[in-house]
Amino acid sequence: MTAISIGAARFGQMRHALGPAAIFAGLLALVALAVPEFLGGGGPSIIAQQATPILLVALGQCVVLQIGSIDLSNAATGLFCAILSALTLGPLGVASPLLCLAVVTLIGVGNGLVLVYTQIPSFALTLGTLGVMQAASLVVTGSNVVYVMDNMDVVAWLFAVQVWTLPVAFYIAVLLAVALWAFLRFTASGQGLSAIGYNERAAALSGQPVRALKVLAFGLSGFFAGLAGLCVISISGAASSIGLGSDLLVPSIAAALVGGTAITGGLCNPVNVVFGAMFVALIPVGSAAVGVDPQAQSIVYGGVLVVAVAATMSRSRNAIVK
């Protein structure tokens, strides 16, 4: 081991640690130059509001990515949570969000259990779950918009209350990201998740409870998606299968990947995912600032997703990728 390669390793770690923040800062600077009034006006508040649901879904996604799997169903599960709570907030009040969170966490756990028991690829399983959740949302709402009839104040404070111009929900999401970071970094289970992502057989042969950890990852994915669903309700007071929050899947995966999460597993820093989510939330403003048609937003999201995964993927020359 030469001094140079140690230096290169440290540089690589540094780039990984600071890259997402730098990418976000770059886009922010671009926006600030093109639209100077953006930062002074309500801009930061709007970005924080839009970033929060993306961040929460992305946090769940990055735990699943940490074990080398993917959850294509969690955004739809989050929307289902929003619909459930829109239906139940009136009659149940405070109990409603807790109940809905419990339901979607169990859906995530169910995903995990089916995965470890049947050993099918996670993208196929969660694609199926995605279809089921979409159908469930349509059936439960009767294909209509469901408005919260009563007890809106149970969730409204998340975005109504602002601290230093940013909604309180954003701070909560950031705190959760920090908590998740600590969990992954300082606990045996967190280290086990990472070991599974890097080398599943070695983790199993070291006695890691691989199945339990996989179920845990998918359960967390469902839980965080549920929190995103509650944010949707808090922002709009209504939910429908095609309304706000129905389009979180690709933005949230892009946020996780821009945040430095490796799609091959093992490598993820939830704190950096915060920057990834803010970057993705800033894309509409940023692309408008450089003159991109707002209708072309999907193109930008898709492009960011592909570029981010290509840039963060660690690959060896002879590996077979399918």
Partner: peptide, 28 residues
Amino acid sequence: GVESAVGGLSAARNLTLVPHEAPWWLSP
């Protein structure tokens, strides 16, 4: 490379990979 070394994790973390008896909190 396939079954025992978790190459992406640090050497120190590889040393603490066996979960039994270890506390759930990994003190640096």
